[in-house]
Design a protein around this nucleic acid. Structure first.
Lengths: 240, 240
DNA sequence: CGGATCTTTGAGCGGGGTCAAATTAGGTGG
DNA sequence: CCACCTAATTTGACCCCGCTCAAAGATCCG
């Protein structure tokens, strides 16, 4: 179940592309001058890396989307986030010998592998790159905390609304439509991420559709009234 | 409401102390050779920094404990963590112009201020220090994710048990008793952190006491059966 | 000692979970 | 391309854990 190797050396794709669409992202061009960046293809359902596997690299998502899962020894499991183009993976495992979580592809992906000790060395020589990585980690912390707040203070329907708005905003930042998109993850994954059950997510989506805010047909979502949705999701306290 | 300045230049306390009790911590001695580390006293209830305030420094807790709070524009608020001796504060705001959360002292604290741009420069000259900071940030991410898992998969009573065990483990790492300690935060703060209501936390503590696992008298806690408690907290799935 | 805050405990309720079944989407081989 | 099968999604009915509302009891501090 190893990811499939695509091509050694420079990618066939315009490398700067990564940087164009992703503000504050890591510049893959600059990095390539200092470390050997390889490119992998990961098929839907496959692990990019998993808990316990030797930590040897960070990864940059070039295409496709993935989920990160935290898991306990006793089998408990939770989706902690969804990653897409431009997102950096593996930073949470820096300082460990083995990765501390699972990363699973939600669809076929193309991923850049950034071998870790070399990246660290490159950072020491390139203050700019260093700053980029540090900021990426800080953004990661803020993103997680922001969702802790959302999950802890909003009702089920509000969480689902906030989730759709978040996906939309990220899509837009990548130059795609932020109002109409395909969810790449199932109801179970959304539910786990939002600390709900999949039936509840399904019901919330149906409700938001009945309210006229969105249109849902399975994984196809259209935000009909983004501003209404935003008001609904941010309504103070949990609304019932 | 500004924190109170204590002393300029080298601290009167043995600086290496920080490093002795905190594995993988930041070496304040080493840092002092490159940046001006000042020491502040923050009184119980005061802010170390707050949302929107200009980001100018990281902070290292030398004594006392604090809570970090995430807050939304509409007033929603959640405690995202509790910090004690050896913990690094402010890393979540790296890359921003202003701090992105609130940090409030739960008791009188002594805090080292590490001015930020200077720390970044020092890191570029000291690979060792750089690695320390990066690992501290990675640990931060793992810690948050680990609690996301706990909050998302355990019942109210299990969360409270897990919380007590976490506090105990951190106390022990600081060379204090891990079986008997004083909680420095109120029921409301614990509840917010665990995504519960304060009444529920109170009831859970009473229940754990009735089961014979702990003794509680207000903020004084004794873990009578840590191993039983650990089994209880880690019981697969939510137990009812 | 008095007043504000924090903590505990009780009683009742409701949002979201659980269990179950119908419906639909998606992938596979003929 | 379609029949088939499996997995994902939706919807319904019911129930329980944790929330709400309320009040009493501790604790802290001036």
């Amino acid at each position: 179940m190893n990811p499939q190797f695509v091509s050694p050396g420079p990618s066939a794709l315009p490398a700067r592309e990564i940087f164009r669409n992703v503000p504050h992202g890591v510049d893959i061009d600059q990095l390539r001058r200092h470390v050997l960046v390889t490119q992998w293809r990961v098929r839907a359902g496959q692990y990019l890396y998993r808990n316990g596997q030797a930590f040897r690299a960070l990864y940059l998502v070039h295409a496709g989307s993935l989920k990160t899962c935290e898991l306990a020894d006793d089998g408990r499991e939770r989706v902690t986030g969804f990653r897409m183009r431009g997102d950096l993976l593996g930073v949470e495992s820096i300082g460990l010998d083995a990765y501390g979580c699972d990363v699973i592809a939600l669809e076929d992906c193309v991923i850049f592998e950034l071998p870790y000790p070399p990246v660290l060395v490159a950072c020491q020589q390139l203050p700019e790159l260093q700053a980029r990585f540090t900021e990426a980690m800080a953004r990661e912390i803020r993103h997680d905390r922001s969702w802790m707040l959302t999950v802890g203070t909003l009702s089920a329907e509000q969480r689902v609304a906030a989730f759709l708005l978040d996906i939309g905003a990220r899509m837009m930042r990548l130059g795609l439509s932020g109002h109409q998109f395909i969810l790449r993850m199932g109801r179970m994954d959304i539910a786990s991420f939002l600390d709900l059950k999949h039936e509840t997510v399904s019901r919330a989506l149906s409700r938001l559709e009945a309210l006229g805010y969105i249109t849902v047909r399975c994984r196809e979502v259209k935000l009909r009234e983004p501003s209404e949705l935003r008001v609904y999701a941010s309504a103070s306290r949990k609304v019932h």
